[in-house]
Simulated scan of single mutants.
Amino acid sequence: MSTLHWAGLLLLAVIAGAVVPFQSAINANLTRGLGHPLWATLASLVVSVLVLLPIILALRLPLPSLAFIAKAPLWMWAGGAFGVCFISLALMLLPKLGASGFIALALAGQVVASLLLDHFGWFGLVERHMTLPRVMGAVLLIAGVVVIQFSSTPAKALVTAS
């Protein structure tokens, strides 16, 4: 792959990560309006379907294979459950931890889980063994999470302290 292609992929990955705190913050406000995180989770997923369907139709994507759907192992359908878990937990925790605290902690969990997924090649991923530099990178990232989470003071506390 060319350097330009890699740069494009890296930029898209950064964008994918950047939208998460926006989604979480917006959905946290939706939670307040709807009265419960699960209602906001459902609303978020319904909007996702409403946005995705016209794109699928515009691209004229063929229907998925019914044979695959019938024989696919159950774990292949767990992505939706993980999405519900992430969105719901984000809605409950983001207001308490702040956007940076929640996202930093979520990122730490993602890095640890990703190292395990790569190391064992679970779910059809290419094995990428857990090396000392990779583990050290995760440790440094988690150290950054600790600094982000425990060095912040809510703005209201700053106002009342002065």
Rank of each mutant, 00 (worst) to 15 (best):
M130G: 05
V51T: 08
W6P: 00
Q110P: 08
W122G: 07
M136D: 00
C85Y: 10
L63G: 02
A13H: 03
L89G: 00
A161W: 09
L93E: 02
G98I: 04
M76K: 11
F22W: 03
V49M: 12
M76R: 14
M130Y: 07
A25C: 05
I69C: 09
L34H: 10
F102C: 01
V159D: 09
F68Y: 13
P133T: 08
V20L: 15
A157M: 13
A28E: 03
A157F: 12
L132S: 09
L42Y: 08
V111N: 00
I55W: 08
P95G: 01
P37H: 06
S2L: 07
F150D: 02
V84Q: 03
V145A: 10
V126M: 12
A70K: 15
L117A: 11
A40G: 04
P95Y: 02
A161R: 15
G124T: 04
A25F: 04
A7P: 03
S88T: 15
I148N: 11
A99K: 08
S114W: 04
A161T: 11
H36V: 03
A104L: 10
A161Y: 12
V49K: 06
L59I: 04
G121P: 10
V20E: 11
E127H: 11
P37Q: 05
V14T: 10
A81S: 14
S2G: 15
A143Q: 05
L97P: 01
L59R: 14
G33C: 02
A7C: 12
V19A: 00
A143C: 13
L132P: 07
I148P: 08
D118W: 07
W77K: 03
Q23T: 06
L45G: 14
K96E: 12
F68G: 08
P154C: 04
A43P: 05
T3H: 12
F68M: 11
A78L: 15
L93D: 01
K96L: 13
S2Y: 12
L116Q: 07
S152I: 03
S88C: 13
W75S: 10
L45D: 10
A72M: 13
A13T: 02
W122T: 08
M76T: 13
V14M: 14
R32L: 10
A157G: 01
A138E: 03
L141T: 11
V135W: 05
A104E: 13
F120H: 15
K156N: 08
G17N: 05
S65T: 06
A13V: 01
L4R: 14
V145I: 09
M130L: 15
V20W: 13
L42P: 04
L38V: 03
S48P: 01
V139T: 11
K71T: 13
V159N: 04
S65K: 06
A16H: 00
N27I: 02
V111W: 04
W122N: 05
A90S: 15
I69E: 06
G98Q: 02
I15Y: 02
I142Y: 06
L10R: 05
V19N: 01
S88L: 14
F150E: 02
V146M: 15
F123L: 15
A157I: 14
G144C: 09
R134H: 00
L132D: 00
W39I: 01
L42R: 05
L91A: 02
G80S: 07
I69F: 14
